[in-house]
Write a protein that binds this DNA or RNA. Structure first.
Lengths: 258, 258
DNA sequence: ATGTCTTTGTGAACGCGTGCACAAAGATGG
DNA sequence: CCATCTTTGTGCACGCGTTCACAAAGACAT
């Protein structure tokens, strides 16, 4: 730590890989659990197991933050909790607005996981005039007309979109114009935003479709293995010989171009 | 490409990269929209724009599926919808169960995005006896005791966990033991499962924390840029120069090891 | 004080995913 | 039938992320 002051720009300030950032909350959660059990220190091996990752990966991740941790001992839990919290920006309060108070929006408003970290639901916004004033999770819903004013008054920089797909882009544009620079999108649409605005999307349907793909593959492999029990499991692993396939022409529904 | 017949084993059979699989639902959604507007064909450039990806990436993704598409013209929309649907396993019906009918579970049960693809909510399961029989989204909630029987009777292979974190692993174990091989986990916990079981997780809190990180960084950069003059509202946004930081020793809460 | 033992921090190799750039393929018009 | 023009499919290079493996660092016992 002789330098200790000017080494930040290159190494720390902006050098944290995206993949590492995405894992920091995972570590933080595991560390918080340890902290509540009053565990003083933890080794990379133990913590990695708790977070469900490789221990080498964890150590490398932490190395981007700095050299916390003591060789031969491990990491000081409380110290690390603080460092990661600070790195993630959780030492400050982040007001968020949720736009679209339907089934999902209401569930999000009630979700306890927000408040537990530094996130505070500053307002709920919906386009339906009938919803206005109606309290959800103890917070009165406000009409979309107030959106810009709400953002401005509360200094909101993070917005959550839980509207139907058709309204998402329009809501997004208004949020961005009002000053929001980070958006969490639950609507099944691709949002286009200007540079400098971050978007993360959560799409339940997509997750299930990915699972279905692997599920189908597993079923195919099983079927192939049981079929001729000699051809090897991967021989017909795909849709290759499973459903109605095989022929380059035979598997076409009816609308084939050629 | 004169051969066009024997190149399959290596190229197609099992070779679809995970990153490509994760994008297929995106393409499918964009294609479905085009299909509803009766657009007959689409170029990689157009479709890529609609899906929010690079056109070269899209073409490479499709090349893993096969050589659909006509040079000089583009891709036949209906044909591609069918091919991707088949690849993802959406031509068959996937019964799913949702375990944990709280705020989130109820919202998921009501979510329309499931049924729109090949997913069917076969049952809702909750540990609270008071919930039993109560209909949510038109489906009566069943008690956890029935879990194994439900899975077995309906041939369920995909389970959705929306329980509190404390119950998630136990529920997961029971689902897996009962025959479920794909799990979508909304509980903020790391699930451990045996080989052959796929888990995908959706964690709202983590997504927000990642956004907060970037938000903090943006504020920090702005502050650095405006450091010389007014400093403005974002000057103290970062942990950097605001709270208790800067010195290698000064920024430690109280429990520093050294 | 010295040696041993544990655990971190990281250099280096590897593999995957991305994007460029272009040749091949086919449509279209003359 | 040939030339031109559009768009696909892909070889190649590059960069990021992961993993291995080990030297350096420090705790701890003697």
């Amino acid at each position: 730590m002789a330098t200790g002051r000017t080494h930040r720009p290159a190494t720390r300030s902006r050098g944290i890989p995206e993949a590492t950032v995405a894992r920091l909350p995972l570590y933080l959660r595991a560390l918080t659990a340890l902290s509540e059990r009053s565990v003083p220190t933890v080794s990379s091996e133990e913590l990695a197991a708790a977070a469900g990752v490789n221990s080498a990966k964890l150590r490398k991740d932490f190395s981007y933050l700095g050299s916390y941790g003591t060789r031969g001992v491990g990491y000081d839990v409380e110290y690390l909790v603080y460092q990661i919290s600070r790195e993630l920006g959780l030492t400050q309060d982040w007001p968020v607005v949720i736009v679209g108070i339907g089934n999902l929006g209401a569930a999000l408003a009630n979700y306890g996981g927000f408040a537990s970290r530094g996130f505070r639901v500053a307002a709920l916004i919906d386009a339906d005039p009938a919803m206005a004033g109606k309290p959800v999770a103890g917070i009165p819903v406000q009409h979309t007309d107030e959106l810009e004013k709400i953002i401005d008054d509360n200094g909101v920089s993070i917005g959550v979109i839980a509207t139907p797909a058709g309204a998402a882009q329009q809501v997004c544009d208004r949020l961005v114009a009002a000053g929001v620079t980070s958006i969490l999108n639950f609507a099944p649409t691709v949002l286009s935003v200007p540079d400098g605005v971050d978007v993360r999307k959560v799409d339940l349907s997509i997750e299930l479709q990915i699972l279905a793909f692997h599920e189908q593959r597993k079923a195919g492999e099983e079927a192939a293995a049981a079929a001729s029990d000699g051809a090897g499991p991967v021989a017909a692993a795909r849709g290759e010989s499973e459903s109605a396939d095989k022929g380059p022409d035979g598997d076409v529904p009816a609308v084939m171009p050629a």
